[in-house]
Design a protein around this nucleic acid. Structure first.
Lengths: 178, 178
DNA sequence: GTCTATAAGATGATAGAC
DNA sequence: GTCTATCATCTTATAGAC
């Protein structure tokens, strides 16, 4: 999908249907054969982003196999932040409300829900269960990513805090479970 | 500033200079008397957002006077998330890279730095010092806000986790300081 | 300071030929 | 399926009258 590259410069909200057509060697009307509207294009990008995330997470989880919970979570979060950094546009459409007037279709949304549910299974394996704990986990991870993207988009200032953050969370959960 | 209202519907990236002029009872060319360009308007909005935040934070800190660190931080974070929820456009321009091709001017940026430094002083008062601890704090707070804005923009699902999150952070810092 | 008029161009989307 | 041509509208920004 060429659209990702084009959306990097001015953000997902600045993406032009015409430009996407041009980038794939078409005129704009021809692209309407593949996408009914610009919103349908956003929809495809949203779903594709979650498919990419699903494949990546499978690898990350496999690589973390056998590690202690803190290292496992910390390393997966660090890789997830890198995944966000790899594409601002993808990050914006998947995880923020950069396009308030756009909503994913039911089908596209279902893809993201499936990915969330897979995440909850992985987290349950290492003892993170319950909605509040899951919400605290997503807040911590997305906060590291948000700060990294906003204040150090090509560096690793918050990436480096992934392990300390994971330790903080795991210790907190263990303490409350005593 | 009428511009905020207009930017809510389609996000800060969808804000139109023309529309802003209209909303304040002017034609677009007249508004150029006050702002040299659209970027200059963004600049003024960015700076105004930080002025509003500064005033609000002063109140929040006063209200938290005498509370224990956990309650003090938790209540300020909860109020900060509400501040973000009050305006998506303000949240986007102040805390995200929703406009990748726009950068605040040096003067506007200085306003945000001053606000950050005031925050570090308040946090130092309750024992949160050192860049890593500050970065962990901003990650935690901005993560709660990011999840709230993206997944429950008018609710309080992550707002309610402000105190538990503050407890997690303070306990973690205390443990490391032992 | 504010206006009308306009430049110069982009946008999403459609009609209809081939 | 892809194209040219076009619609209708939007955009930022400027020139110049009052």
């Amino acid at each position: 999908m060429e659209a990702w590259k084009l959306a990097e410069e001015s953000g997902i909200a600045g993406l032009s249907f015409r430009e996407v057509a041009r980038a794939v060697g078409m005129q704009a009307p021809s692209l309407y054969t593949y996408f009914d509207s610009k919103d349908a294009l956003f929809d495809a990008m949203f779903a594709e982003g979650y498919v990419q995330l699903g494949e990546a997470v499978a690898d990350w989880v496999a690589e973390a196999e056998g590690q202690e919970p803190i290292e496992a979570i910390g390393s997966v979060v660090a890789k997830w932040i890198r995944f966000c950094q790899a594409s601002l546009a993808r990050y914006q459409i998947m995880f923020t409300r950069a396009l308030p007037s756009w909503q994913p279709s039911e089908e596209a949304y279902a893809v993201s829900v499936r990915e969330y549910e897979r995440m909850t299974v992985s987290l349950a394996d290492i003892g993170i269960v319950g909605q509040d704990n899951l919400d605290l986990y997503t807040a911590l991870a997305s906060g590291l990513a948000a700060q990294q993207m906003a204040n150090d988009p090509i560096g690793d200032r918050w990436v480096q805090l992934s392990i300390p953050a994971a330790r903080m969370l795991i210790d907190d959960i263990n303490r409350r479970n005593q």
